[in-house]
Write a protein that binds this DNA or RNA. Structure first.
Lengths: 348, 348
DNA sequence: AACAGGTGAGCAATCGTTTTCCTGAGCGAG
DNA sequence: CTCGCTCAGGAAAACGATTGCTCACCTGTT
């Protein structure tokens, strides 16, 4: 017997998992021939190939990925770094990416930095040690973030930033279209005949709040309109703020006939406040949310018309760009914007 | 030059990442010696070790994990299979596990089956091909699930089931303590002087709903009490059901002074219904939720007293048991129950 | 009959580390 | 002076799959 089984008496089936050498021995060919039979490379008699494939079947052989990776230098793995837990925003992105990568036979290595840069460095080193084929970085906020750095060799691995773009325009980023989203919301309200529109949103230091507000205002201006209360109501991303701000809006501009909210939590707060004051939605005032977070949007009374950012699509596109960069060996820099989708429900 | 650089002119620093051979060449020792210097194995002159370590530093050398894994048979990776998306329940478990494993230098390979058994088989095969050191399986529900199966070689890899236990008692499972949780809730209500307690929960075909209900009833019986409405209100895990059921409770047993809810969504629905009927909480009726899902528990009016299942702890313990099994080479079968925590807020 | 061309299959190097075994130098003791 | 012991460090064999190269053999042609 030329090839020894990993364990067990000679001649007995190998105790551990079968190696290519076991397959080759069973098929009566050399290891190299067996490899070629599997990969389809090289020419050989159909009958020989048959014998090898039969042996593979019999032994339940599966190639050892470590050996393949060592040889090819590829790990068929990408790192997915989330900077702030795995929350409501990064989860769909993550799943979209995992889906797209899985189709390409690539697995996802999960790294959560909890917003800690020490941890980020640690994970980054780990990913490089594992020779990942690429990295997707995703954050909770749409504010730009500094690019990954600090590890030698990083320049040879493609990186895509999803949701939170990189501050370096030479990097690959995939972001949501806040302009388009705000536009969809404004357009929808105008199309349903509303003209006295208020805007309640999150903290001004969040890019998402600023951008959506700016674009909503611009969209209204193009229709010759202004915000009913004359200003944007910046605050928090919470229901409580939605309720408080709704009161303020009703006080300042009682003729308001629609409220566009920066997220679904605020929108839900607004619908609650309206209902408690006996104001009908959408009868008296229409409400539009943002995020299409079903827990909020569907539990609201009435259920919310809202903007869906297509987060899974963002993850999917990030993954596809990464795959392209991996295959091409070079990145196609720039920011890719993914359009939003208007989901109409009973609040408008 | 005995060792050729991967690319670039001879003598120039290697273009790719440095190999141990480069380190050895720079330090003027053999590859084997360099390896020993790094691992601390074997004896050698301190000065020689110094030279190797200096070379490592200079070249920024990091060992190739594929080569190490090929040699050791270990991948320093575990698979994390989630059976139903990555939702509210699996996320904390996942993070807890990732945290505990990260401390052990182990990375997490993420697999989402979307509840599809074809996908599960596919991911499982993939994990086996990658020679993962272990697998954690986590589900959304507390109902037992059939163990992983169908892939040869699986018996040599330790598996821990988190949240959803395996139906096979010989497997390792880590679950939440629904009995203790229901007990905490009931005890808390009794301690605050409530005696007419109702229970509103999710669908009867969910183990979580059944178990919490059963144990709550048993706990009340031990105090010589029964449910105020004489029965458990099974329904859905939704706010709308909470509101509807609250109405039913008020109709059936107007003297009810507390409601224990199967989750925070139901509890929130209950508080909303009470408020809309002018009934004070906790003044007239106290409300206890379950899950400590902050979006619900904190946004509720009043904020909810609720049961926290310590999901991250479940993930952490699952990871620790897996690490033990990996190190010991054998599993310690059985179900491990993780206690809940009572979080008191203004609703009681 | 000899040779060119084609084809099926094996050999061996390679990927980068770890680890075992072995050599040889140096030193102390008899 | 030599024997033997210690210890530093090197050589080489794993780990498992891939692949370029070589070789042997067979067919068809001159």
């Amino acid at each position: 017997m030329l090839v020894t089984a990993p364990a067990g008496a000679p001649g007995s089936p190998p105790a551990g998992r079968a190696r290519l050498a076991d397959v080759a021995a069973l098929a009566g060919v050399s290891v190299g021939t067996a490899s070629k039979a599997l990969s389809g490379a090289g020419r050989m008699r159909p009958e020989t190939r048959r014998r090898v494939l039969d042996a593979v079947e019999t032994l339940g052989f599966r190639p050892n990925q470590h050996a393949q990776s060592l040889h090819s230098g590829r790990s068929w793995t990408v790192g997915l770094m989330t900077t702030d837990g795995i929350g409501r925003f990064s989860t769909p992105v993550l799943l979209g990416a995992e889906d797209a990568l899985g189709a390409g036979k690539i697995s996802v290595l999960l790294c959560d930095t909890r917003g800690d840069s020490i941890r980020e460095q640690h994970h980054l080193r780990n990913l490089m040690d594992r020779r990942v084929d690429g990295i997707i970085v995703t954050g909770r906020r749409t504010d730009p973030r500094p690019p990954l750095t600090g590890i030698t060799g990083l320049e040879s691995v493609p990186v895509v930033y999803a949701l939170s773009p990189s501050t370096d325009p030479g990097d690959m980023s995939v972001v949501t279209d806040d302009k388009g989203g705000a536009g969809l919301a404004a357009e929808h309200l105008l199309a349903t005949g509303r003209t006295r529109i208020a805007h309640i949103t999150g903290p001004e230091h969040h890019a998402a709040a600023r951008d959506r507000a700016r674009h909503a205002v611009e969209h209204l201006e193009q229709a010759g309109l202004a915000l009913s209360t004359g200003r944007v109501h910046f605050g928090e991303w919470s229901e409580a703020w939605g309720r408080r701000a709704a009161d303020a809006v009703l006080r300042t501009a009682p003729d308001t006939d629609a409220v566009f909210c920066g997220n679904d939590q605020i929108a839900r707060g607004v619908t609650d406040a309206l209902r408690e004051r006996g104001i009908g939605a959408p009868g008296d005032i229409a409400v539009v949310g943002y995020d299409n977070w079903d827990t909020m949007a569907l539990a609201s009374r009435p259920p919310l018309t809202t903007i869906d950012m297509n987060l899974a699509e963002i993850g999917r596109i990030a993954a596809l760009r990464l795959l392209e960069a991996i295959d091409a060996g070079e990145a196609t820099p720039g920011v890719r914007t993914v359009p939003c989708r208007l989901v109409v429900r009973e609040s408008t």
